[in-house]
Design a protein around this nucleic acid. Structure first.
Lengths: 109, 109
DNA sequence: CGCATTGTTTGACAACGATCAAACTATGCG
DNA sequence: CGCATAGTTTGATCGTTGTCAAACAATGCG
């Protein structure tokens, strides 16, 4: 089982992408993927303070929406952003969301 | 009651905007607002085939998220996109979503 | 005020979703 | 095979949400 089901680029739906990113935990996961390239389920659970089954659930949601790609290597599964596919499907969308997700310098909290 | 509560520009939250837009009905409302400038509750209910209370519910969700502004004129309430506020808060975000929401010429269905 | 129009609120219902915990699967090591 | 590691699945909770319908409220007209 080295390959998991991923939606084809042309089958990625906007509402599903937006829905996937509307959860704060998943948005944070995506932000970290953008910054660090790859993450495992365990890393996310550990760093974000959620149970590993919850992390798995979120990764599945992200995978199903077309946002992330899952690659298996040994016992680990590495998730990465499907940047090129998303850019092809919805130009500029991911970048503007990532930019919006970055903490603002203007201090407001 | 001519003024309704709207979040300040700096209080608009990304996850709430994305969540508001993750519903197909609301995304369609926003797309129409972008194309036509203003809409009333009744118009949306009529054109999108949802009950007027459902349309009202969606407009409230869009208002609470910071996506639309509501202006009362006589018995009608006109909703419009808060384009400038959203651009100030999350540059490029709304435009990329609107662009992604437009039907693609490439035919895929 | 009475009446029509427009939108909101409430109630009911079904579906979904986020979370944790525990059981299970899959993989690698020896 | 036995054992450890890494994720997944299932079950249980609890809250949220999309929808309609009916009651309500607000507005304008005369």
């Amino acid at each position: 089982m080295r390959l998991l089901p991923h939606p084809a680029t042309e089958d990625i739906e906007l509402t599903e992408v937006l829905r996937a990113l509307s959860d704060p935990v998943r948005l944070e996961i995506v932000a970290r993927l953008a910054a660090r390239g790859e993450l495992t389920c365990g890393t996310v659970g550990d760093e974000l303070g959620v149970h590993k089954s919850t992390a798995s659930h979120h990764f599945k949601a992200l995978r199903d929406s077309g946002l992330v790609f899952t690659k298996q290597e040994g016992r680990l599964k590495y998730m990465s952003l499907r940047r090129a596919d998303l850019e092809a499907r919805f130009p500029g969308l991911l970048e503007s969301i990532l930019s919006a997700a970055r903490p603002h310098a203007g201090s407001h909290g």
